Computed example of a mutant assay.
Amino acid sequence: MKRRERTRQLIELGGLVAKADLVELTGDDRAVILGLLVEAAATLRGEARERQLTLWRQRGKRAFEAAPMEA
């Protein structure tokens, strides 16, 4: 069961990458996408963590409201 849950989580996370248009905007360059994610992780390790989380959360909520993800 845990394997199935993990698979679902990974599929959903991939859907978020696609929803953010990162696949199109990077030409499906996986190194660039990973670099973006590594940069975001570095930001979250910094002093501006809470401020950045708030900003990203607001943007994410607006994106979901604009076009909800399909089930």
Rank of each mutant, 00 (worst) to 15 (best):
Q52I: 04
A63N: 02
G14M: 10
V17S: 02
L16P: 01
R6S: 07
I11P: 01
M1N: 08
K2Y: 10
E39Y: 12
R30I: 15
R51N: 03
R49T: 02
A18N: 02
I33Q: 08
I33W: 02
A66F: 03
G60T: 05
R3C: 04
W56K: 12
V38W: 10
V17L: 05
R3K: 11
R49V: 03
K19W: 01
G60Q: 03
Q52T: 12
V23M: 13
E5R: 11
K61T: 07
A18E: 03
T7F: 07
R59G: 11
M1Y: 08
G15P: 00
R57L: 14
E5A: 09
G46P: 03
V23G: 03
F64I: 09
A40S: 13
Q9A: 13
E70G: 13
A42D: 07
W56R: 12
A66R: 11
A20R: 14
Q9Y: 06
T54I: 05
R30S: 12
R51S: 11
L25P: 00
E65N: 06
A66G: 05
R51M: 11
E70M: 07
K61N: 06
M69T: 00
K19G: 00
V32Q: 14
E24V: 04
V17W: 00
L13Q: 04
A31F: 11
R3F: 07
E70D: 15
A71R: 15
Q52S: 13
T26Q: 06
R3A: 11
G46A: 07
L13F: 01
K19L: 00
G14E: 00
Q58V: 06
I11W: 03
G14F: 04
V23T: 04
G35P: 00
T54K: 10
L22S: 06
E65S: 07
T26G: 08
R45Y: 12
D29I: 04
A66E: 10
G60P: 03
R8E: 11
L44Q: 04
K2R: 11
D21A: 06
T7H: 10
E12C: 01
R59T: 06
L55C: 08
M1T: 06
L22Q: 12
R57C: 10
R3L: 09
F64N: 09
W56A: 15
G60F: 07
L13G: 00
R8T: 11
K19R: 13
T43A: 14
A31T: 13
E47Y: 08
D21P: 01
R45G: 09
G15H: 00
A20T: 14
A18F: 02
E12W: 01
A63E: 05
D28M: 07
G14I: 04
A48T: 08
L36A: 11
K61Q: 14
A66Y: 03
A40C: 10
Q9N: 12
Q52Y: 15
A67F: 06
P68W: 02
T54W: 04
P68T: 04
M69E: 02
L25N: 13
D21S: 12
L37T: 09
E70Q: 14
I11Q: 09
L22H: 12
E39S: 15
A42Y: 07
T26S: 15
L53H: 07
E50P: 02
L25V: 11
T26W: 03
E47S: 15
V32W: 10
G60K: 07
